[in-house]
């Protein structure tokens, strides 16, 4: 181990980790929004939109993120849609994550028993109020473990961003290996930085899962 080298390249890794986290977070937030909207559309069985959402979920779940990114980054500019690498990365992650989040929310929504909805209607609540005050709070709390698992999955998926020339951790490691040939040190730093990002989320996930198991209603 060449510690002088490690000290020298550490700032590069820090910058790369910041980019990974930032783009990851943006993509995850967007995918949560997309997922929630899609899940509600499926739950409320809104005609036409429901079909579109179902197709979207199948397409997004059955294609790799790298292929999606290549299409967005290299393909779309040819028909006049030019996006920066950052926007491409976030868009790709949101496109991929939206369907996973939708599935997570859907299983949460399905776990809310019909009687909850019926009771809310009989109390005179309208559809929006029922969803907002009765169904969602229960559904979200049961889907939190799945959401956290998806967040870890999506953070891991950010590793393919390097393919569209975003200077994330993978890119930095590969670049440094090529430049200085210090393979062991560069890879060790790569593993450590990914652990620093992913381990806390994974621990939170484990703790929350244990907690939430008691938060379900009537189960």
């Amino acid at each position: 181990m060449d510690f002088a080298y490690i000290e020298r390249v550490l700032p590069l890794y820090e910058r790369a980790a910041a980019l990974t986290v930032q783009l990851g977070m943006e993509g995850i937030l967007l995918s949560i929004v997309i997922g929630l909207v899609c899940a509600l559309i499926l739950y409320e069985k809104i005609p036409v939109l429901r079909r579109i959402v179902m197709i979207y979920i199948e397409v997004s779940r059955n294609t790799p993120l790298l292929v999606q990114l290549f299409f967005i980054y290299y393909g779309l500019p040819k028909i006049g849609i030019v996006l920066t690498p950052e926007v491409c990365g976030v868009a790709g992650l949101a496109f991929l994550g939206g369907s996973y989040m939708a599935e997570a929310f859907r299983s949460g929504l399905d776990s809310v028993e019909d009687i909850q909805r019926e009771s809310a209607y009989s109390l005179g609540m309208n559809r929006m109020q029922t969803i907002h005050y009765v169904v969602l709070p229960q559904a979200v709390s049961t889907s939190i473990p799945a959401l956290l698992a998806n967040i870890i999955f999506l953070l891991k998926e950010t590793s393919v961003f390097s393919a569209i020339s975003l200077m994330d951790l993978m890119f930095t490691a590969k670049d440094l290996i090529g430049l200085y040939y210090k393979t062991t040190e560069s890879l060790a730093l790569l593993v450590i930085f990914y652990l620093m990002i992913l381990l806390p989320v994974s621990i939170v996930g484990a703790v929350v899962e244990r907690r939430v198991r008691y938060a379900g209603f009537g189960t």
Partner: peptide
Amino acid sequence: RIMPQMVLLFLVFFGTTRS
């Protein structure tokens, strides 16, 4: 589980060939 597959690929492809 916690390592992105890409990191594992790099570890095996670049890491082991070197060491």
